[in-house]
């Protein structure tokens, strides 16, 4: 853990905010319309990036081990399920269209992540065993564990074109 980092300044927060907003819209997601609330979370993401080397969820306790924290790098593996069920992700950084339109209020929601002992190596993993492929494929199919994007190619993309998750957050699906 790096403790000697400089606190993010306002222009760094604004810059990441603008980028997350743009990327969310491109992928069909929405940031919480409460800009000050979101900037508070963005500041937390920047602090965690400096502290741990990756943007761990600001509302969860990171283990300071990227492998253990792969599921809670923002956007986390739980975002889509929480958006569908509660209209917001765990932090309320991302919200559903209904919340965006003001038809629903985002609130504090229960933690979907399992405690460490009960957690699979790849939480949310639902991929079939490669041996169980029903048909012979010319290339494997990879699934983004953050947004569910599927692609058929030799290796997963370096960055998910939908949600910008890194290659290490893909699983072999078929």
């Amino acid at each position: 853990m790096n403790e000697n980092f400089s606190e993010p300044n306002d222009s760094e927060v604004d810059e990441l905010y603008a980028r997350l907003d743009r990327e969310a819209k491109q992928g069909g997601y929405f940031l919480n319309p409460d800009v000050e609330f979101v900037k508070g979370l963005v500041r937390g993401l920047l602090i965690n990036e400096r502290r741990y080397g990756y943007r761990a969820c600001p509302c969860r306790l990171a283990a300071d081990d990227k492998q253990q924290d792969l599921d809670i790098i923002c956007p986390c593996y739980y975002r889509d399920a929480d958006l569908s069920e509660f209209g917001a992700c765990y932090c309320a950084l991302y919200v559903s269209a209904a919340v965006l339109k003001g038809e629903k209020e985002p609130s504090c929601i229960p933690e979907r992540r399992q405690p460490f002992m009960g957690r699979a190596a790849k939480p949310g993993s639902s991929g079939a065993s490669p041996d169980a492929a029903p048909v012979k494929l010319s290339v494997p199919v990879w699934r983004c564990l953050v947004c569910g994007y599927l692609c058929g190619r030799e290796r997963p993309p370096e960055v998910c074109p939908i949600c910008k998750a890194g290659r290490e957050r893909f699983e072999r699906f078929i």
Binding site: G40, I47, N48, C59, L61, C91, A92
Partner: peptide, 27 residues
């Protein structure tokens, strides 16, 4: 957690309620 906005809101609520409390940032 020092980075968590819901934690911050909780602390602000306790402060606004004017009660005596202790807090710690586990992170």
């Amino acid at each position: 957690l020092s980075t968590c906005i819901w934690c911050k809101r909780t602390r602000e609520l306790l402060t606004a309620l004017g009660v005596s409390f202790d807090y710690i940032y586990v992170d």
